[in-house]
Design a protein around this nucleic acid. Sequence first.
DNA 1: TGTAGTGCCTCTAGTGACTAGAGGTTCAAG
DNA 2: CTTGAACCTCTAGTCACTAGAGGCACTACA
Lengths: 138, 138
Amino acid sequence: MFSIGELSKRTKVKVPTIRYYEEMGLLAEPERTAGNQRRYTNEGLERLSFIRHARDLGFSIEAISSLIELQNHPDRSCEAATKIAEGQLSEVRAKIKRLKALENELKRIAQGCDGRGVVEDCYVLASLADHDLCDQDH
Amino acid sequence: MFSIGELSKRTKVKVPTIRYYEEMGLLAEPERTAGNQRRYTNEGLERLSFIRHARDLGFSIEAISSLIELQNHPDRSCEAATKIAEGQLSEVRAKIKRLKALENELKRIAQGCDGRGVVEDCYVLASLADHDLCDQDH
DNA sequence: TGTAGTGCCTCTAGTGACTAGAGGTTCAAG
DNA sequence: CTTGAACCTCTAGTCACTAGAGGCACTACA
């Protein structure tokens, strides 16, 4: 049995964030001391580690909620879990694609100006003002 | 002179968003009709196109604010503008790097399970529960 | 056993960049 | 002159936290 501060240290999740997860229903409400302070067991620690790892991988609170719901039914098919992970993967891939297009455009814009001229002739500002100067979609 | 709806159509920025930009000080307060409705000129249209393009490229409202401030002083050096664009570029690159690490991890996790088993043995869920199963930092 | 100091409690409000809705007014077409 | 779409302001909600106020609980040491 350990306090919320101890749990925070072990999982590297901040104390208010732990309380927030509890409020969102991701973490079960733990036992309390006579003085109303939260006391966690290893189960709470494992659950929070799971949540943190999933958040690190970019899963939304809602997706994590579904995954936890699944964990509570070990006998069900894990198809849904795989689907959620695949969904997350395609979101990440879409973001990468978009960011790469932005990277190219920004590179072109930033290289077009050495920063030594004046604002009036600045290629950076001209590019932002006029989309037609762009190479690609974004 | 045209209405906010017309401006919205031409720039593809939603009406409430235009009002929001005005409130944030990105757009100058336009003239009003006798009945208190906004009326824009070409200047407003150009300004909003600039903002939209910069937002599409991921610049924050704050960064755009600085860029607009610069535009109001055409005689100044454009070093600051170039710096802002370069800053944005490195942020984008950092995001891409992080997302690529996530992509690898998610690919590995999603491939580890064909979705045909049961939750109890699911590699997706096991991977999320145990960070040690991961290949790389993320 | 007393006390100091850190940690914990709840509650409210703020972040960024919008988005949604209520309730009311104005405009333009027919 | 009427109808209905577009406009107005204001408040509140989104997501995943983060910050702060004001007050109580726990623990270590004297």
